[in-house]
Nucleic acid binder design. Sequence first.
RNA 1: GUCCCCAUCGUCUAGCCCGGUCAGGACACCACCCUUUCACGGUGAGAACCGGGGUUCGAAUCCCCGUGGGGACGCCA
Length: 458
Amino acid sequence: MSQVRVRFAPSPTGFFHIGSARTALFNWLYARHTGGVLVLRIEDTDKERNSEQFLNVIYESLDWLGLNWDEGPKAGGNFGPYRQSERSAVYREYLEKLKAAGRTYEKDGAVWFKLIGERTEVFDERRQKTVTKVKVEPTVINDLIRGRVERVEDEDFIIVRSDGNPVFHFVNVVDDIAMQITHVIRGEDHLSNTSKHVELFKAFGAPLPQFAHIPLILKQNGPGKMSKRDQGALIEEYQRRGYLPAALVNFLCLLGWNPGDDREKMPIEEIIRLFDLPGINQSNARFDDKKLAHMNMVYLLGLPADRFVERARTYFQLHAADAPALQAEAAYFREVMLLSQPKIKGLEELPAYTQYLFTEDYGTDPKMKEKVMARGDPKARLGELIAGLAALDFSSDSAIEESIKALAARHGLGFGDYQSVARLAVSGTNVGPSLTSLFRVLGKERVRQRLERLLAAV
RNA sequence: GUCCCCAUCGUCUAGCCCGGUCAGGACACCACCCUUUCACGGUGAGAACCGGGGUUCGAAUCCCCGUGGGGACGCCA
């Protein structure tokens, strides 16, 4: 059995979105699973829409997701060039083959591919024009995911535009032949096109690759497939929001594929081991950002301390470069981040979640303040805390807890009686790490200042 | 409109191929527990075989027809 060769063939005409990412991912998984080769081919035959900027988005997104390619731009290979805009010579050569075989003709300045069979003129209501139908045998494709699919391709189609540029169907097939692609793994939106492609393969006398049409990702709200304009569709958005690429990849794997049991969070090596084309679902999947967010949290929770701190710092640098957090000592920054790691769902919560730990200029949640001040005698508690502060043992979380409990006991109270007002004083809010951790991290002096400031304000 | 694909909780899905399970898990939602706030976590609840025929002792599972969803029908890819 010869080596598997698959390709991911994006067109740099838009941003890189979730659907493209999953197609790339499934090709990558299959290549890695079989020990085959992943080819990256840039389909930039449409000069009007092509752009270097979009091309870089593709490279960066694949890179971020960890989907490396074995052949293609930047990687090289024996079947290049890998940008279709640089392959005109190849297309000319293949076009000559079709011409020599009598399978083309010119009309309106464009080159058409000629089907073989009896021809009749019919009026097409939808397109409001007369078209030529050709009586041909149905094209059969044995799709690895869908099984046997039969479709009749009964109209000639353009393969070279009047401006001389070849179109998608033609270059796609020519390159799959020239690059010796063995498996075509692509979105189901191409299933109907496949009959055109099969006709071309046959006209070239080339062996058919195996086809595997994967289900589409539907937009979360409203009808239809996800497009680059939809909310949450772009890969770069997740990159920007500090999502872990491993979490996104894991999530994407589970959209249309599963290991056959209940496992969800899985190391990529395990996914590669189990992944196979026939295991892919046949039905479309709706995108669910809540589940993605959950997967991201699970990965965040599982990150080793150093890696989490590193990610956190990168996030701050990207989004809050002027944040006091980045001015803080590395050890302090680390401590605050590790306090936050088990509490947050995404890195994007970090700046707001930790802001009061890096500045004295933090706001107070008015609703929270009202609530806390309305219950018990918070001013008295504040006074007691300040008076007893010098005697509190700040050496560890448990020491702080014990000494506050002791202080509370002297007044016939419990820890809880001091908690909410103390938290309000040191953080201005009611969400955050445990109070003892906040005390310890802030240190006695800053805690004193904050307690006194609140007492003075009420 | 024509052609192609698909159909299990709100969502992602297991089970289907090789008919016999209280139709399982996860996200979301709700309740309770844990708790020093907020989360995490734990327990529990509610929640699905699209409809109709057929085959069969027996159908989520096999077949047919509806219906619904999706896609394609460009000198876009």
